[in-house]
């Protein structure tokens, strides 16, 4: 049993699928607690989740975005003194087996963060050109600034130890709209260890679509800006100048 672990599922207008995500998750009997963070959904998401009495629900009155929903999950886990947090997407792209693999790793391996990587299973994953470009770029950034190889910086399936998620539960420490390579660089610069475990291929792309005009460019610029802020903060921290 691992009731020291909480799975956080941020959900925004996933009423059509969240029931099918929760059912196998609860049926798998992983012995972990499940929390759904409803991010101001305007559809039936909340009603569907309420039909699962064992699921913890934290509900944003208005939509704040993926990053903020995750942070609410970290805050919930921190206030309830959980040891481990896994984050799982509500759109059905992760399987329970993948979650089990990530959790097993965080429970047994000496790492502070575990990422479920789509690129370690040897399968070829069909991804759009923009997405591939972004992932390559972010990998390179991570290696450039931390000398760590992370194969899947955009993966939504991750697990954290208490020391990491309780740090990011503080408002000022988690200014990430859409956590990506920036938060990974921040984690590594804090000296926390990240390992990756292979997970199966996904049906649907994570996060925003990389095929919609200027959005991918703006998104990449935003992440690059965020990485810059992370690096600058690290520099200031080293010199003892911060706050």
């Amino acid at each position: 049993m691992h009731n020291d672990s909480l799975v956080v599922i941020p959900a925004f207008n996933e009423g059509g699928i969240i029931g099918k995500v929760l059912e196998p998750l609860l049926a798998a009997n992983l012995g972990i607690d499940v929390a759904v963070i409803n991010d101001g959904s305007t559809d039936s998401t909340l009603d569907v989740v309420r039909t699962f009495p064992q699921v913890l629900i934290a509900s944003h009155p208005c939509n704040l975005g993926y990053g903020a929903a995750l942070q609410t999950g970290y805050q919930l886990a921190t206030s309830l003194n959980y040891e481990y947090v896994a984050q799982f997407d509500a759109d059905g792209q992760h399987s329970v087996d993948d979650l089990r693999r990530v959790l097993d790793a965080i429970w047994t391996v000496d790492a502070d963060v575990v990422i479920g990587s789509r690129f370690l299973s040897g399968q070829r994953i069909p991804l759009g050109f923009g997405k591939v470009l972004a992932i390559r770029l972010f990998r390179r950034f991570i290696y450039m600034f931390t000398r760590n190889h992370i194969t899947d910086p955009t993966s939504g399936l991750k697990a954290f130890r208490n020391v990491v998620f309780s740090h990011y539960s503080k408002s000022k420490e988690y200014p990430f709209d859409y956590p990506d390579a920036d938060v990974l660089i921040d984690i590594l610069l804090h000296g926390w260890r990240i390992i990756e475990v292979p997970v199966g291929s996904y049906d649907r792309e994570t996060g925003i679509s990389m095929h919609s005009g200027l959005r991918p460019l703006i998104y990449m610029a935003k992440v690059a800006m965020s990485i810059f802020v992370v690096l600058l903060n690290e520099l200031l921290r080293k010199r003892g100048l911060q706050r």
């Binding site: 629900i57 934290a58 509900s59 609410t72 919930l76 408002s171």
Partner: peptide
């Protein structure tokens, strides 16, 4: 930032109340 904090507090308080 303020709206985010308030919204998150409301969400967590709601969970407690539940």
């Amino acid at each position: 930032e303020k709206i985010r904090k308030v919204t998150q507090s409301v969400a967590l308080l709601g969970e407690k109340l539940d």
